[in-house]
Write a protein that binds this DNA or RNA. Structure first.
Lengths: 238, 238
DNA sequence: CAAGGTAGGTGTACGCCGTACACCTGTCAA
DNA sequence: TTGACAGGTGTACGGCGTACACCTACCTTG
């Protein structure tokens, strides 16, 4: 017993151990039970010890999000973009069901965490490899956004949001910072695709209203088609 | 000045006055500044005074959601269901942009508030009046769900969630309680439409996985169509 | 091998939160 | 006139995130 306690104490705290314990606690007891105090207790440590490894609770949440998003299967190489995207998104869904706190956590944060950017970037890459124009890929990502994962919707607002003023930003180009653009080339590409493609719209990287209506009309047109052809769910395989 | 203070004090606190002040505070200062203490101060009153009109903070949030959702325009009578739904949803979007705290608040709560149920019910009514089968309307509501408003996704899970056990509920029919069904007939109708329509699926009111894939494939098919016909956003009106 | 810097766990304390509970006060019915 | 009651007040409690000073065990370097 003393031996076990000793072993536990000897195992040093680390950012990863904290993140994993936090995910486990949120999975099992719900996100509302995830306090620095409860988490520290689970780790057999005093609350302030955590702060040697994570800056604060928000950073802890960001780390947890990255743990969860990192569990999404990598894309399987496939000639067909549609299969690839479909499998990937279904994998993401399974992950988010394993971690019920994750969708809300993702939506409530800035969502510029590395794992999310990686995920989105490789998704854009799949579309591009499938022959999509950067312009279409841009709108498609917006359309997929909140329906499928609950994020990506406001991704390109991040640069705009950085400028604190509530009014329109005086320096509008809103391109990604270069080091970010280098790490995530597909994202960088589509971030500007929609704006410079006709110069009458001088301002922001993308037009929220247009993106929203694009997705809405896409859904509505599909729904209308189903309606017209008398769709019914009885045509299921089994 | 004493006169004004007197007038302010004389105006009695009421649930509506509290709700409106809470919405205003959340709109202007952000939802994270909405504490019972701050809200009470805005109303020139001591924090505990609020509890004579709202049971607790969660109930306050529910009331705020109803205030916001109540601002969505009523449906305009129109022979075309598509126009009706489109206008309604764009109105909802405007409302949610006026109250940026609302989407997250809605998603983080049980979302069985009266205004939300009314909104959803009348939306279903529009589809049904347009000739949709209850079955199709059911799936369509799921597909619209999170993309358009961020809610309705888990609506029909409410009854399932009421049974606390994490495993499958022993009494599966999961129909709406009769008094709810009476108030929201269209919702009641589609809640059971998908389940009893072939009896091989004995259990729950609807199949989450199927709903998700339905929406996903709807999107993907539409996207594929755009892709094949070389869609570009340059075809915009102005 | 001695010295001392440093990484990392500890203890205390502060200000904020939601809210339970006892209390007071003005109004109105009987 | 009385007394019930609706509604605002004051105090207090436990929980939260976390600043800050401390302590301690190890590792580097002469």
């Amino acid at each position: 017993m003393a031996e076990q306690a000793d072993m536990l104490r000897r195992t040093p705290l680390s950012r990863d151990r904290i993140l994993l314990a936090a995910v486990a606690l949120a999975d099992e007891a719900g996100i509302e039970s995830l306090s620095m105090r409860n988490l520290a207790q689970d780790l057999g440590v005093v609350p302030m010890a955590l702060y040697k490894h994570v800056a604060n609770k928000d950073e802890l949440l960001d780390g947890m999000i990255d743990v969860a998003v990192g569990e999404i299967d990598p894309p399987v190489p496939d000639a067909d973009w549609k299969h690839t995207v479909r499998r990937r998104i279904l994998s993401a869904r399974q992950v988010l069901r394993r971690h019920p706190w994750a969708p809300l956590a993702i939506e409530s944060r800035n969502m510029a965490t590395p794992a999310i950017l990686t995920y989105l970037d490789s998704m854009v890459g799949t579309f591009r490899a499938g022959g999509f124009s950067a312009d279409l890929a841009h709108h498609v990502m917006h359309a997929m956004g909140s329906r499928i994962l609950g994020f990506s919707q406001e991704l390109f607002d991040a640069s705009r949001r950085a400028g604190r003023s509530g009014t329109t930003n005086p320096d509008p180009p809103a391109a990604l910072p270069p080091e970010v653009a280098a790490r995530f080339p597909h994202l960088a590409e589509i971030a500007t695709a929609a704006s410079h493609d006709n110069e009458s719209v001088v301002g922001q990287g993308c037009d929220d209203q247009f993106e929203f209506e694009f997705a809405l009309d896409l859904l509505l047109d599909g729904i209308e088609r189903l309606h017209q052809q008398g769709w019914t769910s009885s045509r299921r395989p089994r």
